[in-house]
Protein backbone atom coordinates (compact mmCIF):
# COMPACT_ATOMS: atom_id res chain seq x y z
CA UNK A 1 0.00 0.00 0.00
CA UNK A 2 1.39 3.26 -1.07
CA UNK A 3 0.63 6.53 0.68
CA UNK A 4 1.40 10.10 -0.43
CA UNK A 5 1.76 12.68 2.30
CA UNK A 6 1.46 16.33 1.25
CA UNK A 7 2.12 18.96 3.94
CA UNK A 8 4.31 22.03 3.97
CA UNK A 9 5.35 21.30 7.56
CA UNK A 10 8.36 19.01 7.61
CA UNK A 11 7.86 18.00 11.26
CA UNK A 12 4.40 16.78 10.45
CA UNK A 13 5.42 14.95 7.27
CA UNK A 14 8.31 13.47 9.21
CA UNK A 15 6.05 12.25 12.03
CA UNK A 16 3.46 10.83 9.66
CA UNK A 17 6.09 9.23 7.46
CA UNK A 18 7.78 7.54 10.41
CA UNK A 19 4.49 6.43 11.93
CA UNK A 20 3.15 4.98 8.68
CA UNK A 21 6.45 3.34 7.94
CA UNK A 22 6.45 1.80 11.39
CA UNK A 23 2.93 0.60 10.77
CA UNK A 24 4.04 -0.92 7.49
CA UNK A 25 2.81 1.57 4.90
CA UNK A 26 4.97 2.64 1.96
CA UNK A 27 4.82 6.39 1.79
CA UNK A 28 6.13 9.25 -0.21
CA UNK A 29 6.44 12.66 1.38
CA UNK A 30 6.44 16.03 -0.28
CA UNK A 31 6.46 19.49 1.31
CA UNK A 32 5.64 21.28 -1.92
CA UNK A 33 1.97 21.32 -2.84
CA UNK A 34 2.70 21.65 -6.58
CA UNK A 35 5.06 18.74 -6.39
CA UNK A 36 2.31 16.83 -4.59
CA UNK A 37 -0.12 17.64 -7.39
CA UNK A 38 2.38 16.49 -10.00
CA UNK A 39 2.94 13.23 -8.15
CA UNK A 40 -0.77 12.54 -7.94
CA UNK A 41 -1.07 13.24 -11.64
CA UNK A 42 1.90 10.97 -12.42
CA UNK A 43 0.94 8.06 -10.26
CA UNK A 44 -2.12 6.76 -8.52
CA UNK A 45 -1.63 6.30 -4.75
CA UNK A 46 -3.65 4.01 -2.56
CA UNK A 47 -4.24 6.98 -0.31
CA UNK A 48 -3.21 10.62 -0.27
CA UNK A 49 -2.93 12.50 3.02
CA UNK A 50 -3.42 16.12 2.08
CA UNK A 51 -3.03 19.15 4.26
CA UNK A 52 -5.52 21.87 3.39
CA UNK A 53 -3.78 24.87 4.83
CA UNK A 54 -0.69 25.36 2.80
CA UNK A 55 0.84 28.62 1.65
CA UNK A 56 0.64 29.67 -2.05
CA UNK A 57 -1.06 26.51 -3.25
CA UNK A 58 -3.53 25.03 -0.82
CA UNK A 59 -5.01 21.59 -0.53
CA UNK A 60 -8.20 23.03 -1.94
CA UNK A 61 -6.36 24.19 -5.03
CA UNK A 62 -4.95 20.69 -5.51
CA UNK A 63 -8.37 19.13 -5.16
CA UNK A 64 -9.95 21.61 -7.58
CA UNK A 65 -7.19 20.98 -10.12
CA UNK A 66 -7.70 17.24 -9.79
CA UNK A 67 -11.39 17.71 -10.17
CA UNK A 68 -11.06 19.80 -13.31
CA UNK A 69 -8.67 17.25 -14.76
CA UNK A 70 -11.09 14.49 -13.85
CA UNK A 71 -8.57 12.61 -11.75
CA UNK A 72 -10.11 13.29 -8.33
CA UNK A 73 -12.72 10.55 -8.47
CA UNK A 74 -10.06 7.87 -8.97
CA UNK A 75 -7.90 9.00 -6.11
CA UNK A 76 -8.62 8.33 -2.43
CA UNK A 77 -7.73 11.35 -0.41
CA UNK A 78 -7.85 12.00 3.31
CA UNK A 79 -7.55 15.65 4.08
CA UNK A 80 -6.50 17.19 7.33
CA UNK A 81 -6.74 20.67 8.50
CA UNK A 82 -5.72 22.74 11.46
CA UNK A 83 -8.55 25.19 10.90
CA UNK A 84 -12.05 24.44 12.01
CA UNK A 85 -13.29 21.34 10.29
CA UNK A 86 -16.85 22.61 9.96
CA UNK A 87 -16.06 25.48 7.67
CA UNK A 88 -18.20 25.42 4.59
CA UNK A 89 -15.19 24.90 2.33
CA UNK A 90 -14.28 21.68 4.11
CA UNK A 91 -17.91 20.56 4.01
CA UNK A 92 -17.98 21.15 0.27
CA UNK A 93 -14.80 19.15 -0.13
CA UNK A 94 -16.16 16.24 1.86
CA UNK A 95 -19.08 15.96 -0.53
CA UNK A 96 -16.78 15.37 -3.46
CA UNK A 97 -16.12 11.87 -4.79
CA UNK A 98 -12.71 10.64 -3.77
CA UNK A 99 -12.47 12.57 -0.54
CA UNK A 100 -12.46 9.86 2.08
CA UNK A 101 -12.51 11.96 5.19
CA UNK A 102 -11.14 14.79 7.13
CA UNK A 103 -8.89 14.71 10.11
CA UNK A 104 -8.57 17.55 12.44
CA UNK A 105 -5.19 18.72 13.45
CA UNK A 106 -3.66 17.76 15.79
CA UNK A 107 -4.14 14.36 14.32
CA UNK A 108 -4.76 11.37 16.53
CA UNK A 109 -2.51 8.78 15.01
CA UNK A 110 -4.88 5.90 15.70
CA UNK A 111 -7.64 7.90 13.97
CA UNK A 112 -5.32 8.33 11.02
CA UNK A 113 -4.69 4.63 10.93
CA UNK A 114 -8.42 3.95 11.00
CA UNK A 115 -9.00 6.43 8.19
CA UNK A 116 -6.34 4.84 6.00
CA UNK A 117 -7.33 1.27 6.55
CA UNK A 118 -11.05 1.69 6.19
Amino acid sequence: MKVLIVDDNRDITGLLSKFLKAKGFDNVVTNDPRDGLERIKEQKFDIVLLDISMPEFSGIDIIQTLETENILKDQKIVIFSATAFTTSQINDLLKKEGIQGCLKKPIQLNELLTAITS
Partner: peptide, 16 residues
Protein backbone atom coordinates in the same frame (compact mmCIF):
# COMPACT_ATOMS: atom_id res chain seq x y z
CA UNK B 1 -3.73 26.73 12.32
CA UNK B 2 -0.44 27.96 13.60
CA UNK B 3 -1.13 26.91 17.16
CA UNK B 4 -2.45 23.53 16.18
CA UNK B 5 0.30 22.73 13.76
CA UNK B 6 3.04 22.36 16.41
CA UNK B 7 0.68 20.20 18.41
CA UNK B 8 0.56 17.66 15.61
CA UNK B 9 4.13 16.41 16.01
CA UNK B 10 3.98 16.80 19.83
CA UNK B 11 0.93 14.68 20.18
CA UNK B 12 1.94 12.41 17.34
CA UNK B 13 5.31 11.55 18.84
CA UNK B 14 3.78 11.14 22.30
CA UNK B 15 1.39 8.64 20.82
CA UNK B 16 4.18 6.86 19.00
Amino acid sequence: HELNTPLVPIKGYCEM
